[in-house]
Amino acid sequence: MLPRDPLGLILQGLALLGRPVLQSLLALGDMVSFTLNVLLRTFLPPFYPRIILQHAVEIGFFSLPVVGLTAFFAGMVLALQGHTGFARFSAEAAVPRIVALTLTRELGPVLTGLIVAGRMSSAIAAEIASMKVTEQINALITLSIKPLHYLVVPRVIAAVIVLPILVSISDIIGIMGGTLISVYQLDFHPDTYLQNTWNFIEPLDVISGLVKASAFGFLIAIMGCYQGLRCEEGAQGVGRATTLAVVAASVSILFANFILTSLFF
């Protein structure tokens, strides 16, 4: 049986497709405008150095154990896998180089970014969302404090500064993990291994990783703050904001990683 109004049905179908697309574009526009607003306010007074320091400790220092542990195991696994692959071409000597290169350029920043995203994006979103639900944000406003200045900018600055430091530490710990496995299991000489690593790494390898780390820090803080401030009322809203913050931060880290890798390639 033919539909009575085929044009109407087509339009209805298009509307069904168009509505979510429009909503997504609106959400994207809102997020971009929020990000630009935050960027602008980063350079405008008032500045809150003490609050930046508090967030830096929260984001950086308390993430160190999990970041370090992950980097250590990643370094060990890289050495083992690298050895398995390179042994097929009798190129085992490349293990230290591949461990160092992969850690500094890719795994260090990406793994650290994802771990901090899971740990901090959710925490930032949950904290700001509960502040919104319990009218603490309204209280801030009526006390003449701009929430963007007080809640968002210090977290963004702290994350942008702290992530490269975390990544540097994670690079060192990862290389130590690779060295440990290479020396005790793959029979490398420790001095030769470290010499190979040191000689092979170029400044750009480290710099590209640190630039990525800063970008990931920015994304982690922005996504957490954005989802927290845009959260709907109620406990369910807080839960949803937390989940969305982690998902958005993780996806944007992977996307930004691709873009930045293309730039540094």
């Binding site: 509960s130 502040m131 319990t134 009218e135 603490q136 309204n138 209280a139 801030l140 009526t142």
Partner: peptide, 10 residues
């Protein structure tokens, strides 16, 4: 302003 649920900063 005295808020309904006090709105103290946790």
């Amino acid at each position: 302003v005295l808020f309904q649920h006090s709105a103290l900063f946790d």
